[in-house]
Design a protein around this nucleic acid. Structure first.
Length: 545
DNA sequence: ATAGGGTTAG
């Protein structure tokens, strides 16, 4: 330990670019008083790696050529993982190949983890595919890499491949698979995995329980989440956060605040930054502005509490905006101790749209187009704002700007799970085997709903086409297709659960209300941000989202 | 060389 520190001090006397081995030989002659010289090369590497001196460590690696060992590679890779140093890690990998070193499973797993932490999933997958033998960690590391980055189908495919190969899973594998299912909101599949986990009679793992809480809430079944939460004999802050965020995403402000109070009263687990994000956004989505503002006030004044960071300030902008206090939100942004981010302006712009505040909205919108010109959503909201106040020339101006900048919108997709199968639709999708039935039903619904008072909101269509064409485009929106498909494929009164990868459009939201009212269906719509629970024509989001 | 891979937020 002392030696390490001494070695480290010595290094600073030499130019950093000098090859390491020459450096050592040069000072061994002067420093004979030091205890164990020449130093063990492993200790040299250890020191460099633990100091994060990657460049020097790589020079040492090159100098050692074939003498690199398991421990040396392990050390280097771990340092690269910690620093997310892609280039450096790649050189370590290349060194193994060049020296014909055959890494054992453990080291190959480190390579998979290294590549996936650097966001290089293809490289990670190559390592996995080339492994002569894999263990449970190899598979799990890759599955979780996919799940965490939103590649849910790839994660599931790989999980199936793992099962087929005869490898058995453990609780970490299940937790990763559940994350993938949360992303897809595949409730039935999630339940199946849950059942399987129960049958396996695994011991109690908090991590696994946490991912079950999250899976059920993201699949729209909060009752199950709460049941798991209540039955836990031991909880971590993540358990509380998962439950709080679940209520928040479902717009259940009262439950959020209640659970938060329970957490404070129990006084066993300390809230963290994520807890407060969940509570504040829960108050915002759940229509409890004043409670949220009070909690934020406590954060600002508190002593050993969580210190508010920019995202907490963002929640307050949301809170004020929702309450229609748009000017106040604007002033709040100007006074914050942080530089406002695009996301923060975006939330204010959303509030301006909902409350038709053209003065603030115009300023914020143009500001946003400057700092985030690649985000299509900004153009759409600003254009909708202009449309809602009849400023058609400005609508055209924004649309032209959007065309000029050629911003690409992530294609909207919606899906619905029936009999453990996900049926996915994009706008005006004609690929589904039952498309004819779906389109026939859509026409019927359009007429029926109009009689009941549905007015298509043409301002949701940005294309410059005539009204009839606009209505056609509107009717082809993916969430309407998925809803209609659900309606014709399930029994009367069965609830419908539709998921959309983007935020839901106002017209589709309204359309879903008519579905719920006229067909007496509970409609659960999950969009990018939150859940909409629509019942008898009324939505839990209070029409603000 | 018997661990590592894992859960919440956006």
């Amino acid at each position: 330990m002392n030696l390490l520190r001494k070695l480290n001090c010595l290094f600073h006397y030499y130019p950093k670019s000098a090859p390491f081995s020459s450096l050592i030989s040069s000072f061994t002659t002067h420093q004979l008083t030091l205890t164990t010289f020449p130093p063990d090369p492993q200790i040299v590497l250890t020191t460099l790696c633990s100091n994060g001196q990657l460049k020097e460590a790589l020079i040492e690696m090159a100098a050692r050529g074939l003498e690199m060992k398991f421990e040396s590679y392990d050390m280097l890779l771990n340092a690269c993982i910690k620093k997310r140093a892609f280039r450096e890690g790649q050189r370590v990998h290349a060194h193994m190949i060049k020296t014909r070193y055959l890494p054992p499973v453990y080291l190959r797993n480190r390579l998979i983890i290294f590549y996936s932490k650097c966001d290089r999933l293809r490289e990670a997958r190559n390592v996995l595919d080339e492994m002569p033998e894999k263990d449970v960690v190899s598979w799990t590391a890759m599955i979780s890499a996919y799940s965490q980055r939103g590649f849910a189908t790839e994660a599931l495919d790989l999980f199936l491949e793992m099962l087929r190969s005869g490898m058995s899973s453990n609780y970490v594998t299940y937790a990763s698979v559940l994350t993938a299912l949360s992303g897809l909101a595949a409730l039935d599949l999630g339940k199946q995995v849950h059942n399987h986990v129960l049958r396996c009679k695994l011991p109690f793992y908090v991590v696994l329980q946490n991912s079950l809480i999250d899976m059920y809430s993201k699949c729209g079944n909060l009752i199950y989440s709460r049941r798991i939460f209540d039955n836990m004999s031991e909880r971590t802050v993540i358990s509380w956060n998962a439950m709080l965020v679940g209520y928040s995403k479902h717009g259940m402000g009262r439950e959020v605040v209640e659970l938060y109070k329970l957490m404070r009263n129990e006084n066993k687990i300390k809230p963290d930054s994520v807890t407060l994000l969940g509570v504040l956004s829960g108050c915002s989505h759940g229509g409890m502005e004043n409670v949220g503002l009070e909690i934020f006030e406590e954060m600002v004044n508190g002593k050993d509490e969580v210190e508010p960071d920019i995202e907490h300030y963002g929640c307050v902008v949301d809170l004020l905006g929702r309450a229609g206090r748009v000017e106040e939100a604007f002033e709040f942004i100007k006074k914050m101790p942080f530089e406002p981010t695009a996301a923060l302006w975006g939330s204010l712009l959303g509030a301006c749209k909902v409350h038709s505040n053209i003065e603030v909205g115009e300023f914020v919108g143009h500001r946003l187009l400057e700092i985030e010109p690649e985000n299509a959503g900004n153009y759409v909201i600003l254009s909708n704002l202009y449309a809602s106040t009849g400023r058609w020339e400005d609508v055209r101006m924004v649309r032209d700007l959007m065309l000029k900048k050629a911003v690409k919108k992530e294609p909207g997709r919606s899906w619905i799970e029936l009999d453990q199968t996900l049926h996915s639709f994009h706008a005006s999708d004609r690929s589904h085997p039952r498309r004819e039935e779906v389109f026939a039903k859509m026409k019927e619904l359009s007429i029926k709903f109009k009689e009941a008072g549905y007015v298509p909101d043409l301002s949701c269509v940005l294309h410059d086409v005539d009204e009839e064409q606009k209505e056609k485009i509107l009717l082809g929106h993916s969430e309407k297709l998925a809803l209609t498909f659900g309606l014709i494929s399930t029994s009367d009164r069965a609830p419908l659960r539709v998921i959309k990868n983007l935020r839901i459009c106002i017209d589709c939201h309204n359309f879903a209300k008519f579905v719920s009212k006229i067909y007496m269906r509970e409609v659960y719509l999950r969009d990018k941000n939150r859940f909409h629970h629509i019942s008898m024509g009324v939505c839990s989001c209070g029409d603000y989202w």
